[in-house]
Design a protein around this nucleic acid. Structure first.
Lengths: 133, 133
DNA sequence: TTATTAAAGGAAAATATTTTTCCTTTAGCA
DNA sequence: TGCTAAAGGAAAAATATTTTCCTTTAATAA
């Protein structure tokens, strides 16, 4: 099935409208993998010249609330947003700032104090990517 | 050796002055473990009634640059700041928002694509803490 | 001690970021 | 094709952070 149809379905399930602006935002996140507010805004302006930055923010929040995208907080950088898919970890290059998806650890042997209930873990690896070596 | 003396030494090594405001900020972060800008500001105002929020921000940035403190980006929350000590991981309670230090994983078996050089990893565990169960 | 001086503090302004308001447009549906 | 609630756009408001500019002070040395 095509990506845009999938997104339209996901939106519908949450009683959200499939507007061209919203679909474009999802398309940009899909294409880039991870994008921050400004990247999304600059990119979408190419197709929607008069789109308001407020619309970008409103849609980011709507999509976050719907669980369609998630926010990735990157050390020393602006937050990136990505479409929710299978669980994975992130690698951020300290030279170019690019964020990459990497497989998540098979197991995470962290011993928590008694009484602490983990629900999920996020791992961010900082290093240098292939391009920047 | 006393904590405040240690901090004074660390500041001196970086050619930074040990001002009362700065020492108080370090004391607050020490006491709380993790504190966000507003917590620090509210707390320090008890002792320095007329301290400027700009001073808090300026000192946070100075201490970050000096590597004396670090910023912890917490999912869905404001960043917290903590004094740099031994490496550890974090646990954030999704009920109360409190951040706890936990031991870091003994090893992290993430297979990176060829050419990617990891330097360090940060792990954030989200769950429910003992108090909130 | 006291004098010197660059760094740091405070207040206010400037800038940046995000949200809200209010009105217009449009997607989804009958 | 018309109706209506949701979404978009522009501007204002609210929030967050940084900068400016002047005053105060910590650190150093005489």
């Amino acid at each position: 099935m095509e990506k845009s149809v999938q997104y339209a379905d996901m939106l519908k399930q949450k009683d959200l409208k499939s507007t061209p602006q919203r679909m474009a935002m999802l398309g940009i996140m899909e294409a880039k993998g991870h994008a921050d507010i400004d990247e999304i805004y600059q990119e979408i302006k190419k197709d929607f010249v008069s789109i308001s930055l407020a619309t970008v923010y409103k849609n980011i929040n709507t999509l976050l609330d719907a669980g369609i995208i998630e926010e990735i907080k990157v050390p020393q950088k602006k937050s990136k947003f990505e479409i929710v898919k299978h669980k994975h970890s992130h690698f951020v290059c300290e030279k170019c700032g690019e964020v990459y998806d990497v497989q998540k650890p098979k197991k995470l042997d962290i011993e928590l104090p008694e009484g602490f209930e983990p629900r999920e873990a996020s791992v961010m690896i900082v290093g240098v990517c292939k391009k920047c070596r």
